[in-house]
């Protein structure tokens, strides 16, 4: 096998795992859009906030310490203890549940029956509020996140590919773990939506709000539930991306990686988010491999959007999205 082909295969394999990382972010968007028709602009910031909260709980950081110190002239930063990772994750999930309840209670309850663009604008406001709130609560400095997932080159992949091709592929262990976690997450979401009472209620609301309301399903409960699920997905995405490059405010920009994935996979399909992520991941890596050296590199950011645009021309609803037919 030629070197070029081997390198291209390596790039494609890395594209698959990178695609899973993008899909993790896209999943949160899909969940909320499917259940409520809201395009949640704040999904990236939710991932950041969840990761900040996780690190804060893990390291025993005092919330709002900067504010407390500024007002009272104290020098408080840490409680002096740290929490085991699993306990900190559980604590973060509770925070995201509280966040979901607050979002429903103080924002969306007042916006029922409003135009989708109003709801979208509300999520933009929410994103900026949450970013500032996260800064105030946990500080803006870069934080290291260690949740016990190994990082670095996977020796197993390196050895196996070396034995097969005479060239060891590089794959990041963290991204392989992310793929596994994403698979478990998707399986969990599918089981939840297919086999539980709440999941069926969620699907009913997604299909037809009015009909769901008429059979006694509480829209408020469903919205709290779906924002909680999106919060948990945001936590997983924040954990993976935070472990990769530290927890810092640019983490919120990972949402930009999810948009082309959504255009490609469709806004209402969980499998679509996964497949869209994989196509974007592989596509951008292969494009960068073949075309990058010819056009100066740094193609990943714009190529994903270009690919999504091409898809939009031929399939506006995405690969797995529902085709909306409106009769005039």
């Amino acid at each position: 096998m030629s070197d070029t082909l081997l390198f291209a295969l390596e790039a494609a394999a890395n594209g698959l795992t990178a695609g899973v990382m993008y899909a993790l972010v896209a999943l949160g968007f899909v969940l909320i859009f499917k259940a409520s028709g809201i395009f949640n602009f704040s999904q990236g910031v939710m991932a950041l906030f969840a990761a900040l909260t996780l690190v804060g709980l893990q390291s025993g950081q005092i919330p709002f310490s900067h504010l407390i110190n500024a007002i009272f002239g104290t020098r408080l930063h840490y409680f002096g203890w740290s929490l085991p990772t699993l306990v900190a994750i559980a604590g973060t999930v509770l925070v995201m549940v509280a966040f979901a309840w607050l979002v429903e209670r103080y924002i969306f309850r007042h916006l029922v029956n409003q135009e989708p663009i109003i709801l979208f604008m509300a999520t933009i406001g929410l994103a900026y509020f949450l970013e500032g709130f996260g800064d105030l609560m946990w500080g803006a400095e870069v934080k290291r996140l260690d949740v016990g997932i190994p990082q670095g080159m996977s020796l197993a992949v390196d050895e196996a590919t070396f034995n097969w091709f005479g060239y060891g592929f590089y794959m990041d262990t963290l991204e392989l773990w992310a793929a596994l976690i994403a698979a478990i997450l998707v399986a969990g979401l599918v089981i939840f939506s297919q086999y539980t009472k709440q999941g069926r209620a969620l699907r009913a609301v997604a299909d037809d709000h009015q009909a769901a309301l008429s059979v006694g399903i509480s829209l408020r409960f469903i919205w709290v539930m779906v924002w909680t699920l999106a919060g948990i997905v945001a936590l997983v995405a924040g954990m993976m991306w935070g472990a990769k490059s530290g927890v810092q405010f640019s983490l919120s920009l990972i949402a930009l990686k999810a948009l082309p994935v959504l255009i490609l996979g469709g806004f209402t399909s969980i499998p679509g988010a996964i497949v869209g992520g994989l196509i974007i991941g592989v596509g951008e890596k292969l494009f960068d491999f073949f075309m990058g050296p010819l056009i100066g590199g740094a193609t990943e950011n714009w190529f994903a959007y270009m690919l999504a645009l091409v898809f939009l021309l031929f399939r506006p609803q995405g690969l797995f999205g529902e085709k909306i037919i409106e009769r005039v």
């Binding site: 890395n14 990178a18 590089y170 810092q248 640019s250 491999f289 950011n301």
Partner: peptide, 30 residues
């Protein structure tokens, strides 16, 4: 590397292939 630079998978695969003696970085932030 496009800003902000959170995703550098392709760049480092290329560096791995090219096997340079040194890497000089002109970066900022993440």
């Amino acid at each position: 590397v496009d800003s902000p630079g959170q995703e550098q998978g392709s760049q480092w695969l290329q560096i791995r292939r090219e096997r340079p003696d040194y890497v000089i970085m002109w970066g900022w932030g993440v």
